[in-house]
């Protein structure tokens, strides 16, 4: 077994007095696809936001690609540069064109020459099939197109890990598929992915492991087939019966 690329040990997090994450232990190996599911308020989003330190954890350790996440700003920025993230609300930069959205970080964070960054961006936009929209602004695109652009933007940093925070929850039903297709392609290309989602079809298709969370704890962690065929805890069974 190779060294895990993400290693979380005994991680706890509080918002004020409220404990959102309790004793999380998790290891993710390179090229694995993990789907995190669970009822709302169970701490799924907070967990993956901790992985690139958009949220601070108070206890325990998180190690990403050999670097531990601490107060050290330089480390945090270095880790964020190799961990891509896609948000529920897309969070594209509305004042920049689609192309500029994609080239901004490579140019200014990775110091890539502008021309090279643009070529890379066009390649990534091609991958998610919105290369023809490159000169438009985010406000002119549909939700599905915006989310695909957000995926391309994250990929332009050539990350080692991709985090998805409910990428399809804010989309109209007919646009969910185009975004999921883009994610499936990415999974097939061998990216390490952690996906918070309610799309169980997607989980069955691409996930290596499924994690079920409730009340800030990892209730169940199993291989995908095992998880759906034979869930162990009652809480998981109840959740699956409601969602499937």
């Amino acid at each position: 077994m190779s060294d895990p690329i993400i290693k979380i040990e005994g991680m706890n997090k509080w918002f004020g007095d409220f404990q959102v994450l309790k004793d999380i232990d998790l290891e993710v190996e390179k090229n694995k696809k993990i789907v995190v599911c669970g009822p709302s308020g169970s701490g799924k989003s907070t967990l993956i936001r901790c992985i690139n330190r958009l949220e601070e954890h108070q206890k325990g350790t998180i190690t990403v690609d050999g670097t531990e996440l601490t107060e050290n700003t330089k480390n945090i920025e270095a880790i964020r540069a190799e961990v891509g993230m896609v948000f529920q609300q897309f969070n594209l930069f509305p004042h920049l064109s689609i192309l500029d959205n994609c080239t901004l970080a490579p140019i200014w964070v990775k110091k890539m020459p502008k021309k090279e960054a643009e070529e890379l961006a066009m390649k990534q936009l091609e991958q998610v099939q919105i290369a023809d929209q490159a000169q438009k602004f985010p406000g002119q695109l549909s939700g599905g197109q915006q989310q695909r652009c957000a995926i391309a933007r994250a990929l332009c940093m050539e990350p080692k890990i991709m985090l998805f925070d409910e990428p399809t929850s804010a989309l109209d039903p007919e646009m969910i598929k185009e975004v999921l297709d883009a994610m499936v392609n990415l999974a097939k290309a061998g990216m390490t992915m952690i996906v918070v989602t309610h799309e169980m079809g997607f989980a069955k298709e691409v996930a290596d492991e499924v994690i079920f969370m409730d009340e800030g704890m990892i209730v169940e962690k199993a291989e995908t087939k095992e998880f759906f065929a034979n869930p162990k805890s009652d809480r998981t069974k109840l959740f699956l019966s409601q969602i499937l």
Binding site: L54, E77, A81, E82, F87, V109
Partner: peptide, 12 residues
């Protein structure tokens, strides 16, 4: 989300 997105791309 704008702050989150910028941070997640590694911007200081």
């Amino acid at each position: 989300g704008q702050y989150d997105a910028a941070k997640s791309l590694g911007m200081g």
